[in-house]
């Protein structure tokens, strides 16, 4: 089960993306024209203070919201004008989400949680079981298939969420503060999974406010006041593999 890889071609391509929220009579410009291209196979970290527009940007990129102006091409397809149902289809097929709060269904075991995205793609029950089990195997939870979130640690829950994000073989993985609820060691482990997936060709877009987490990516984009402030490659990249080895030595 390899994540689709299309290195070279742009996966995310936004042009002057503007988002204005209307709150009563007041208009709030959350995004003031952002143009950003993420090539296939990239691993980018989006940073910025709260209110910088990075969450709005991620919602637009994740097809959870529609831009007020500007265009957004996902894998070359203009998704700006799609209906709610069409966006849901795009999310289900092309994007995998990992959230800060894990967002697993409570009282539902790991296998069923990972099967969830396949339910909406009309995949037969037997294939669902098999693919979900494989995905969990991949994140190292092959022996926890029938545990419910309450029976799993935070790191394990986040792994289930990653398995769920991968199971429909998306072209883009969106991780919104995925280590926000985890201790530092588990954070490094989770970042290790992302790095591994990225090495296999998956495009990863990560939102974080922690600089050392962002250093696991290859590129850092910083937002401020709804605009792109900075866009730079990571110079001294952290590799989870090495960090974990060092920690074991210490």
């Amino acid at each position: 089960m390899d994540p689709s890889s299309n290195s070279g071609a742009p996966v995310v391509e936004t042009r002057d993306l503007v988002k204005i929220y209307r709150m009563g009579d007041v208009e709030v410009q959350a995004l003031g024209g952002v143009s950003l291209t993420i090539q296939g196979g990239e691993f980018a970290a989006v940073m910025g203070a709260s209110g910088s527009g990075k969450s709005t940007f991620m919602n637009l990129v994740g097809c959870l919201d529609k831009p007020t102006r500007g265009s957004y091409l996902l894998n070359g397809q203009d998704v700006g004008g799609l209906s709610r149902d069409q966006l849901a289809r795009v999310r289900g097929r092309q994007i995998g989400f990992v959230f800060q709060g894990f967002n697993l269904l409570p009282r539902t075991n790991a296998l069923e949680n990972v099967e969830l995205p396949m339910l909406y793609q009309g995949i037969a029950a037997r294939d669902r079981h098999q693919r979900a089990a494989e995905a969990l195997e991949r994140v190292g939870l092959g022996d926890r298939l029938h545990h419910t979130p309450a029976q799993l640690s935070g790191g394990q829950q986040q792994r289930v969420a990653i398995a769920r994000a991968l199971v429909n073989r998306p072209t883009l993985l969106l991780a919104d503060e995925p280590t926000g609820n985890l201790d530092s060691r588990t954070s490094v482990e989770v970042m290790g999974i992302f790095q591994e997936l990225n090495e296999q060709g998956l495009t990863v877009l990560l939102v974080t406010h922690e600089a050392d987490i962002a250093d696991h990516a290859k590129r850092i984009v910083v937002f401020k006041d709804g605009l792109l402030l900075e866009d730079r490659p990571v110079t001294r990249r952290r590799l989870s593999r090495e960090e974990l080895v060092e920690e074991a030595r210490a």
Partner: peptide
């Protein structure tokens, strides 16, 4: 509500 949000994020349409 949260469960509905999760389902929608992973591809559930309104009619689902």
């Amino acid at each position: 509500t949260r469960e509905i949000g999760i389902r929608m994020a992973v591809g559930a349409r309104g009619r689902d």
